[in-house]
Design a binder for these strands. Structure first.
Lengths: 200, 200
DNA sequence: AGTCAAACGGAGCAACGTTCCTTTTAGTAA
DNA sequence: TTACTAAAAGGAACGTTGCTCCGTTTGACT
C-alpha cells in the first residue's frame, strides 16, 4: 500500500526511466502486432517488434491478459462511458441498448481473436475476462433495466449472459463474407423485445 | 478408385487386422479423452490411452479434424436426418426449426470445445468445419425455406449464418452457471420470427 | 517356413509459453 | 567524475505441444 507510483517521493526514485520507456514501446508494439497477427500472436514477435527481450514483457505484463487489457483499456473505457450517454440521448431505452451493443460489436469485430480470447475462461485469460465483465456488464445491466422498466423487453435475461452471447457471436467469423456478426446480434436484440409490442 | 475397402477382394488382403483393430481402439480412446479433456486434448494423451504410438494416430487420422469427425459422425448424421422428420411431424415449420436447433445445441454443449474448434477456420480445422457445414447447413436451409414459405420468418438470414451463430453461442461458456447457451439461442430464433405480422 | 509390404512406435524437430539467472544500466552519493 | 547498488534487461533454457520420419515389427499370402 505504498505511494511509490510515479516519481513523487523525494527518497529513492521509484521508477526508472528506461522502464517507463520500455512499457510505452511495448504497448505500441503490441498494438501493432495485435492488428497484424491477432491478440494471440507469439510473445517473441511482440518482443522482437519492440526490440526487447521476452523477459521484459513478462516483467511489465505478467500475463498476456494484462498486456491486452493495457492495450485496449482506453477503448473499453470509452465504450463503457458511452452507455449512460446513449441512454440519456435516446428516446427508447431498447434503442439505446441496441446502439450501445453496436458500439461493442464494432469494437470487437475489428480486433482479431479478441472475442475468442474473451470466451476462453481457461488459460490465464480470466483476468481479461474479468476486466471486460467488470467494466461493461454493469453498463449493460443499467441499459437493460431501463428497457425493462419501460416495458420494452422481458426481464428474462441477465446482462452478463447478454454480453457474453454478443461476444460469442462476434468471435470467429474472421473474414468470412457469409457471416455477419452484426446481423446476428441485431436479431438477438430483436428477440429480446417483448413479443407483439407495437407501442404498448 | 479401387475396391480395396474391406476384405472382399480375393487377391492380396487390402486391410490388415491390426490396422482395423487399432482404428477402433483409437476411436474409443479419443471419445473417452474428448469427454475428459475436450477435443483439443494432446495427441499424446489419446495415443497413450489407446496404447499406440502417435504415428499410428496420424496414419489413421491425418488431421485432428479427421479424428473428431470420425468420433462424432454418427451423432452428426442423426442430427441431420432428424431435420426432415421434424418438419414432417410438426405443424409449424418455425417450431420445427426451433426443435431442430435444440437438437443441435444439445449435441454441441455436451462436447467440450467442439463449438470452439468449429468456429476456428484457421489451423487444420477447416475440414471439421466443412464437414459440419456440408452435413447440416442444407438441412437447416430446408427448414428455413419452409418457414419462410409459411410466412413465419423473414428471409433475411442465410442457413450458414444461422448455424454459425448458433454454434458460436454454444462455444465457450463451459460450466458457467450464469451463461445458458440454450436460452440465448432461443432468443435468437425468436428474433428470426416476423415482427408483428398478423397476415401480410 | 519364407517373403514383403503394410503398419507400427517413438525419437526427433520446430514452435510456443514461461522461468531464471547473468549482465547491463539508471540513479544516487561521494 | 567516479563508485556503488538495486532495478531492469536480455536471452538461454526448460517443459509442452503438433507433426514427421525412419528403422523395426508383424500380418497375410505363398
Amino acid at each position: 500500500m505504498s505511494l511509490d507510483a510515479g516519481q513523487a517521493g523525494q527518497g529513492t526514485p521509484r521508477k526508472r526511466a528506461d522502464s517507463v520507456r520500455n512499457e510505452q514501446v511495448l504497448l505500441a508494439a503490441a498494438a501493432a502486432v495485435f492488428v497484424a497477427s491477432g491478440v494471440d500472436a507469439p510473445v517473441r514477435e511482440i518482443a522482437g517488434k519492440a526490440g526487447v527481450g521476452v523477459g521484459t514483457i513478462y516483467r511489465h505484463f505478467p500475463t498476456r491478459a494484462d498486456l491486452i487489457i493495457a492495450v485496449y483499456r482506453h477503448q473499453v473505457d470509452a465504450c463503457a462511458e458511452a452507455g449512460p450517454a446513449l441512454l440519456a440521448d435516446t428516446e427508447s431505452p431498447h434503442s439505446a441498448l441496441g446502439q450501445w451493443i453496436d458500439l461493442f460489436v464494432e469494437f470487437l469485430v475489428t480486433k482479431h481473436g479478441l472475442a475468442a480470447a474473451l470466451q476462453n475462461d481457461r488459460d490465464g485469460f480470466d483476468a481479461l475476462h474479468s476486466y471486460f465483465v467488470d467494466r461493461l456488464v454493469p453498463v449493460c445491466a443499467h441499459l437493460l433495466e431501463a428497457a425493462v422498466a419501460a416495458g420494452e423487453i422481458d426481464p428474462d435475461i441477465g446482462a452478463y449472459e447478454l454480453m457474453r452471447g454478443v461476444g460469442n457471436l462476434c468471435a470467429g467469423g474472421g473474414m468470412d463474407a457469409r457471416y455477419d456478426a452484426d446481423r446476428l446480434v441485431k436479431l438477438l436484440i430483436r428477440g429480446l423485445a417483448r413479443p407483439a409490442l407495437p407501442k404498448g
